[in-house]
């Protein structure tokens, strides 16, 4: 009941802010961003204050003519690598990307050695 009451307050007393339809581009970018204050949700999926503001910021940046890459960079500078779901390849993440491939090649070699051609 209390929460319902609080909600009513929020619903009644809040001033309107942008109701602009979020574009496809915003959806695409926000799907790749972690909502930092939520538990394992993307910005796209979340309805938290943080995520809502983030979507507006992304829209603004798009309107300023920024491309995806620049927007990710901008947010990474503010919040660190943690905010993006798609880690870039750098000295910290090189193993992440390469290790599975190494294992695949290694396994392939083991199979080739095991199998007799004749």
């Amino acid at each position: 009941m209390k929460i319902l009451f609080r909600l009513l307050i929020i619903l009644l007393f809040f001033q309107n802010y942008s109701l602009a339809e979020t574009s496809q581009e915003v959806d695409k970018i926000s799907k790749n961003l972690r909502c930092l204050i939520c538990q394992g949700q993307s910005v796209y999926d979340s309805q938290s204050d943080f995520a809502l503001s983030m979507k507006i910021v992304i829209q603004n940046k798009i309107d300023e003519g920024k491309n995806d890459e620049q927007i990710y960079e901008y947010l990474k500078a503010k919040y660190g690598e943690w905010i993006v779901y798609d880690p870039e390849v750098n000295k910290n993440t090189i193993l992440l990307w390469v290790l599975p491939l190494i294992l695949f090649v290694f396994g392939g070699i083991l199979i080739i050695r095991k199998v007799s051609i004749k």
Binding site: S18, I37, L52, K78
Partner: peptide
């Protein structure tokens, strides 16, 4: 900061 976007400029969470 009615939309919360100025705070994001500071890298705020909430």
């Amino acid at each position: 900061d009615p939309k919360g976007i100025n705070s994001i400029e500071f890298g705020a969470f909430g």
